[in-house]
Design a protein around this nucleic acid. Structure first.
Lengths: 359, 359
DNA sequence: TCCCGACCATAAAACATTTTCCTTCATAAT
DNA sequence: ATTATGAAGGAAAATGTTTTATGGTCGGGA
């Protein structure tokens, strides 16, 4: 194990001079500097990051807490984060908060991960929280206190707007996007539009329901919330079950807005099994724009969510905070917009686009 | 910042006694132990992992180097690793070696990540290497030297068999699996079976080609390698292009074995566009068993690869090494088998299974 | 009574750095 | 010639632990 003192000995200088040369903190005469540098190279010295962290208090590591790493959503977000982190020379400590325990304790586990990251002195944390809307205020306070335990560790909320609680947030405009989706169905001629929503008590689910309801109202359409809104669980199986229920509840429906694409895929299966023609008879639109959506037949209209881009933005915000601590104290909130992608589940003549898509 | 000395002061004992109580290394009289413990709780003391690493030389972190974190394969593997790591109280440092730079430098970047991880004193590394078969020997030597730079850091190769170079390996039996796939096509009556393969110079690609070729030969079928094997690039677009080429080369083909499911999905699109009936006229089989395969129509027969399970196994092997260093020096190799999944792209009457699948 | 060992607890070293505070020496100013 | 100034580099402190070596106390056997 070659340490800084070996370099110092070899170069015939003091330890601090080696440190200064290698970190460029202070002026060292060219001749000494050169001696140090060549000694370091010769011994193939590499500083021990652990020891550096000990003093300098920063680790070159950021923590990321998400759900479903194996799913269709977060991996893209993480990819965006990873890109920026790599570019800036940081490492990423990644954990899936929702996979290990049941949903009830997901919040607890999330907090535990947070604590572990902070204890490991990460330089920042990006997290997609599962906490319910009601508990948010409390929870955010806890997080902030934790984040400042040893040093002011910047944190960025992903997918949830916690800017009201003083936490930088990068999130999607679920209300607006849902409105766009439903409006598109209306514009296509649908008048009896139903909604397959996600699990209870999730903010992103509620936004979408509100977007749906308001757009219906705006267009003068009545909604029987009991019958026309059915809960799925964001999985294709959930969508499958929900669609069956919907067909019983509202046999004459002519449009369905699904809370995500996975459920839409399940719903589509049902419609095909039942021989209901899509889009002629029933139009279907999803949310997220996952790869499968461009593949299924008919291809699925949806709202394209900038997943990777959101990761990039979140990482940018984080690194801005990390790199100039001084930067204005005003909380940063970035609202990512979505984009309507029209495919054949709403417009029969829409072009195929799967061959183009990057994913 | 409350440190161990604060606890010591509060409990009225020495620093080392606090350490001994909290780590249970040495016997400490119950009365003192209790005093220490309650002092620690009262001050809500948590040891600084960085400082601990400094002495004890182990970090509670493992490094994972993969490709395509946002793809359809590695996320599942990573999930398996994450599960085991979490259960054992370790954290996961994750990087995608292939996303940032072009393919040429992927190997270099992979090595760089390896170096960074080692410098960060991770306790072990699981990696899926991109190195070519020819360069493997050399590369593995480099890795091993790097791994032992500071301490004997266990490393496990995923997806590649480096056991010959003394590296524990968990990998898939690509040759056998491909043989099964091709044999299945033969058993279904196909006699002119083509292959859409992956990029050049990749070991996993070559295995599959060999499995294909040998099975063809075994069944007395001739292969014109120029025409009947076409390179895709493991993407759906690649599969799309390759299938078109294949239809020109071999108009009377009656079966296609695709190197992965993504390409198979692309190939399927072509067949549908051209009005070739699947499976009656042309049978199609993929490899990997990704989610989409159960969704497309007709659903795609494939070889199910135990992705998550492989991650679990790799993590197990790693932690075994980490936790008892003494453990026999014999290299560990685990060959994960695959399973034929028959769907409608080869057998029209196959049952639908998408609703069952877990993913 | 003395000595030895067993048993606890402590002081101090060690880990590999960064950083603060000095020292030294040359140069310029008086 | 003497003193002030400032630049350059070194000694040592500090970081928060674990571990090693040491010390002190007490009981029992000679």
């Amino acid at each position: 194990m070659v340490g800084i003192k070996d370099v110092a000995r070899k170069a015939g200088v003091s330890i601090s001079t080696v440190s200064n040369v290698l970190n460029g903190k202070r002026y060292v005469s060219p001749v000494l500097a050169e001696r140090v540098r060549s000694a370091a190279v010769e011994l193939s010295y590499e500083a021990n990051p652990i020891a550096q962290q000990m003093k300098s208090k920063h680790s070159g590591i950021i923590g990321v807490i998400t759900g479903d790493m194996y799913g269709v959503f977060y991996p893209y977000v993480v990819k965006g984060i990873d890109e920026v982190a790599t570019q800036r020379g940081y490492q990423v400590l990644l954990s899936d908060a929702r996979s290990v325990y049941g949903n009830q304790s997901a919040e607890k586990y999330e907090l535990e991960l947070f604590r572990q990251y902070i204890n490991n002195r990460v330089d920042g944390i990006i997290f997609a929280s599962v906490v319910s809307k009601e508990r948010s205020a409390n929870y955010c306070e806890k997080l902030k206190k934790l984040a400042d335990k040893y040093k002011k560790t910047p944190i960025v909320s992903l997918e949830r707007d916690f800017s009201g609680y003083g936490i930088d947030s990068v999130y999607f405009d679920g209300y607006e996007n849902s409105s766009i989706a439903v409006q598109h169905l209306y514009d296509c001629g649908c008048r009896k539009i139903c909604h397959i929503s996600g699990p209870d008590h999730m903010e992103i689910v509620e936004e979408r329901i509100e977007g749906y309801l308001d757009t219906m109202k705006k267009n003068g359409l009545r909604v029987n919330t009991r019958k026309m809104i059915v809960k799925g669980n964001y999985s294709h199986q959930g969508g499958y079950r929900a669609m069956k229920e919907l067909l019983e509840n509202v046999p004459d429906l002519d449009g369905v807005f699904c809370g995500n694409d996975q459920m839409a895929v399940g719903a589509l299966k049902v419609l095909k099994e039942y021989g209901r023609r899509v889009p002629e008879e029933i139009r279907l639109i999803g949310y997220d724009d996952i790869f499968i959506s461009s593949i299924v037949e008919p291809s699925l209209s949806t709202i394209h969510i900038k997943k990777r881009h959101a990761g990039i933005e979140a990482a940018r915000v984080l690194f801005d905070r990390i790199e100039n601590q001084d930067s204005g104290k005003s909380v940063c909130k970035i609202l990512m917009d979505g984009r309507l992608v029209v495919r054949r589940s709403t417009v029969a003549s829409a072009p195929e686009d799967w061959i183009l898509s990057e994913w």
